[in-house]
């Protein structure tokens, strides 16, 4: 697949949203809207029902937001920061996913990361892996 010749790159800032990166930004953007708005509504209206679950959704939303911002901003520092966040995200999905299966009573209501993100077509668990591959590939060759 030929990259277009119009790649205008500012020197020193890796562009992270070319090609597959654009799709990643889109999916991350959708997850930001999904997780943040969902937790905002739930925390505002029924926080006492499942405080842990709703807080975790809010945290997930923040992590997604930061990764989206890093991807759009570009650059080596943002790339590394996004990589760290993706690792954190993956850890979060795996931990919370296992936790919801092992101890369902701690979660009266679902979070974004419940059952490894099953309610979101498993996107929460697939996304960080894909993003990490992409971010490793877009490292600036020194």
């Amino acid at each position: 697949m030929a990259e277009p010749a119009e790649e205008v790159e500012k020197p020193g800032r890796t562009r992270l949203i070319g090609g597959p990166g654009m799709l990643l930004v889109w999916v991350y953007g959708v997850m930001v809207v999904g997780a943040v708005s969902r937790s905002a509504v739930q925390i505002a209206t029924e926080f006492d029902k499942a405080p842990l679950a709703y807080s975790l959704s809010a945290v997930a939303g923040l992590v997604y937001g930061f990764i989206t911002y890093s991807l759009v901003r570009g650059g080596e520092t943002a790339r590394k920061a996004a990589l760290v966040c993706c690792a954190a995200e993956l850890t979060g999905v795996l931990t919370v996913g296992t936790w919801t299966l092992a101890d369902p009573s701690a979660f009266p209501d679902a979070t974004v990361w419940s059952d490894y993100g099953m309610g979101y077509l498993f996107i929460p668990v697939l996304l960080p892996v894909t993003a990490m591959f992409w971010l490793r590939k877009s490292r600036t060759p020194n």
Binding site: E3, G19, G21, M22
Partner: peptide, 12 residues
């Protein structure tokens, strides 16, 4: 976003 990404990835 597909306007900004004029490749197949914009279509995806």
């Amino acid at each position: 976003m597909s306007l900004a990404e004029r490749t197949r990835w914009g279509s995806i």
